[in-house]
Simulated scan of single mutants.
Amino acid sequence: MEMNPESHVPVHKTESKDQLVDAGRGDIGACGWVILIISALFAAITFPLSIWFCVKIIKEYERAVVFRLGRIISGKAKGPGMMFVLPCTDTFIKVDLRVISFAIPPQEVLTKDSVTTTVDGVVYYKIENAIKSVGNVNDVHLATAQLAQTTLRNILGTQTLSSILSNREEIAHNIQSILDNATHQWGVNVDRVEMRDVRLPVQMQRAMAAEAEAVREARAKVVAAEGEMNASRALKEASMVICESPAALQLRYLQTLNTIATENNSTIIFPIPIDLLQGVVKK
């Protein structure tokens, strides 16, 4: 029978990355049990002096990953409260479960439209699985910070400058999703990513300011042209009304004189046609 070559791949590759560290209760061997018994006898003989070395206090927001002869014991992190460790055989590492924040240093990024910009941000995360954070990565905080910087540069390198300035929330959400998926095997949960500042070169700022000023001037000219067009239409309608009633022109003339006399104290001169004066003189 022909065997599918892909049937052997899932045996190793389908194992979840969450199980890179086996926290089960493995056998420490006969030599390990001998060392463990000797350590327990030493702690009993030196009691109560050994109590200061065997009893440890874990705070409410901390968990302790205990190693016994190099193996993680009890299958889970211990704490909070008091725990007992054996001298010489047991070691432990405290893990802080509170939300941790760090600032992403300013990253100089070349955008998709070939614009150089400097972007920084803030990442908020917390450790959900203490055993993974200790056993699967050397320094979980440094690894998360380095991955955040790399992800920020990779994501912004595929965006244009206008999209970076207008879609900050969407870009931050994409970065948060990528970080959360990548750090899941480290026992880390990325809660939030924020882009704090986007700094542009001085020449680019001047060019954008000139462009914005030109756009505003163009809009102002369009608005003025629309106003002139509407005013001309209104004057046309007014002229048609005045043509229908010649007396309306005289009334409008008197109203204009009244407005001038009210606003400014000035002398108003009425021009009289010379032909009219000649007729009076002849009479």
Rank of each mutant, 00 (worst) to 15 (best):
S16Q: 08
E170F: 07
A148T: 02
N154S: 14
A248V: 09
R71V: 01
I178L: 13
F42L: 12
I73M: 05
Q19F: 14
T89H: 02
D191K: 12
R98E: 07
V66E: 01
H12S: 11
D90K: 02
V11A: 12
I57N: 09
R153C: 05
A212S: 08
D180E: 01
Y253W: 07
K76P: 01
V134P: 02
D18K: 12
G279Y: 11
R233L: 06
A30F: 14
V222A: 15
Q203A: 13
L41H: 04
P106C: 06
A44L: 11
N136M: 04
V134R: 02
A238I: 07
R216W: 03
E244F: 02
M229H: 12
N138K: 12
H12L: 15
N258M: 07
S162L: 10
E211P: 01
L257K: 14
L36V: 07
E213P: 00
D197N: 13
P106V: 09
L249G: 07
H8A: 15
L200E: 07
V198H: 05
N181T: 10
S101E: 15
G70L: 10
I178S: 14
L235R: 12
Q159C: 14
I272Y: 04
V215D: 15
R192E: 05
V140L: 00
F67Q: 00
A220M: 10
N264V: 13
N167I: 00
I37H: 07
H173I: 09
S266W: 09
V123C: 03
V241T: 07
